Amino acid sequence: MRTLNLNPIFRANSGLDRVFDLIEAAAQRQGDDFPPFDSLRLSDNRFRLSIAVPGFRDDEVAVTQHKRELIVSGERKVDTEGEYLHQGIPARVFSRRFQLAEHTEVTGATLAHGLLSIELVRNVPDAEKPRTIPVSVSPDSAEPVRQVERNVA
């Protein structure tokens, strides 16, 4: 199975969150799905991308955010200790691009046990957050409604 199915996540959400839409769209646009990744929702405004980068060191991986695009790239340096008899761990150059939702920024990245974890936080300004407007009764509407005509059957 080579497709990313986020339908179970969508059913649990109100449908207003575009973060997973953008991550899924980015994954489907690319023909190459290396390296594989997971996307997790930690809370309403915190997310984590976990990208499998086995064999890569921290100086061989780069994480860049430019406006609303996250770019993760890597290139392994040549190991000159010996000659490979079999090389099963991928060592190819990669670059993955993710479109981020508005007001989403990268707060950190850590590499541990072959997983690159990228922390994302969405900071929506107060001016753009939904707000509840109280509804009050107008003093003019307190008068009873007069009936002009009445049909009696």
Results as ranks from 00 to 15, higher is better:
residue 106 V to L: 11
residue 74 G to M: 05
residue 39 S to N: 00
residue 54 P to F: 05
residue 25 A to I: 12
residue 83 E to D: 12
residue 91 A to W: 13
residue 85 L to S: 07
residue 74 G to C: 05
residue 39 S to Y: 04
residue 1 M to Q: 04
residue 143 E to I: 11
residue 134 P to W: 11
residue 44 D to S: 08
residue 137 V to N: 11
residue 42 L to Q: 00
residue 31 G to V: 08
residue 38 D to M: 07
residue 120 L to D: 01
residue 8 P to V: 07
residue 141 S to Y: 05
residue 144 P to H: 01
residue 43 S to Q: 03
residue 46 R to H: 08
residue 38 D to F: 12
residue 153 A to T: 07
residue 2 R to F: 09
residue 9 I to R: 00
residue 13 N to W: 12
residue 58 D to F: 07
residue 126 D to I: 14
residue 36 P to Q: 07
residue 51 I to W: 05
residue 18 R to Y: 07
residue 87 Q to E: 14
residue 129 K to R: 15
residue 108 G to Y: 03
residue 87 Q to A: 14
residue 115 L to T: 02
residue 64 T to I: 09
residue 89 I to V: 15
residue 127 A to F: 13
residue 115 L to I: 04
residue 10 F to K: 11
residue 68 R to W: 08
residue 83 E to N: 10
residue 43 S to G: 04
residue 115 L to S: 05
residue 6 L to G: 07
residue 22 L to A: 07
residue 72 V to Y: 07
residue 123 N to K: 13
residue 130 P to W: 02
residue 33 D to H: 14
residue 55 G to K: 08
residue 133 I to W: 06
residue 69 E to S: 07
residue 112 A to G: 05
residue 72 V to W: 02
residue 16 L to W: 11
residue 70 L to W: 03
residue 103 H to T: 06
residue 3 T to D: 00
residue 149 E to W: 12
residue 85 L to W: 05
residue 31 G to L: 09
residue 78 V to M: 10
residue 139 P to M: 13
residue 57 R to L: 10
residue 121 V to N: 08
residue 27 A to H: 14
residue 7 N to M: 11
residue 31 G to D: 06
residue 48 R to A: 10
residue 133 I to R: 15
residue 96 R to Y: 14
residue 147 Q to V: 15
residue 67 K to G: 04
residue 151 N to I: 15
residue 119 E to M: 10
residue 74 G to S: 01
residue 97 R to N: 06
residue 52 A to G: 04
residue 147 Q to N: 13
residue 148 V to I: 13
residue 32 D to H: 08
residue 116 L to I: 07
residue 128 E to W: 11
residue 39 S to C: 09
residue 30 Q to M: 02
residue 89 I to W: 06
residue 2 R to N: 11
residue 116 L to Q: 00
residue 62 A to T: 02
residue 33 D to M: 03
residue 58 D to K: 09
residue 144 P to D: 01
residue 93 V to H: 15
residue 55 G to R: 02
residue 17 D to T: 10
residue 130 P to K: 09
residue 18 R to A: 06
residue 69 E to W: 10
residue 18 R to V: 12
residue 30 Q to L: 04
residue 98 F to P: 01
residue 146 R to S: 15
residue 51 I to Y: 01
residue 149 E to S: 11
residue 38 D to K: 03
residue 133 I to D: 04
residue 106 V to D: 03
residue 35 P to R: 10
residue 62 A to F: 03
residue 137 V to H: 13
residue 16 L to K: 13
residue 1 M to A: 10
residue 74 G to F: 01
residue 124 V to S: 07
residue 97 R to G: 04
residue 89 I to L: 15
residue 134 P to H: 15
residue 87 Q to D: 15
residue 15 G to Y: 15
residue 85 L to A: 06
residue 110 T to V: 13
residue 145 V to E: 02
residue 97 R to V: 15
residue 49 L to N: 01
residue 48 R to P: 00
residue 96 R to W: 13
residue 142 A to S: 05
residue 15 G to V: 05
residue 17 D to L: 10
residue 91 A to P: 01
residue 132 T to E: 10
residue 46 R to E: 08
residue 149 E to M: 10
residue 87 Q to P: 05
residue 63 V to C: 00
residue 45 N to Q: 03
residue 19 V to E: 02
residue 112 A to S: 04
residue 142 A to F: 03
residue 114 G to V: 12
residue 104 T to W: 02
residue 26 A to F: 03
residue 24 E to R: 14
residue 80 T to D: 08
residue 107 T to D: 10
residue 49 L to P: 00
residue 119 E to G: 11
residue 131 R to G: 06
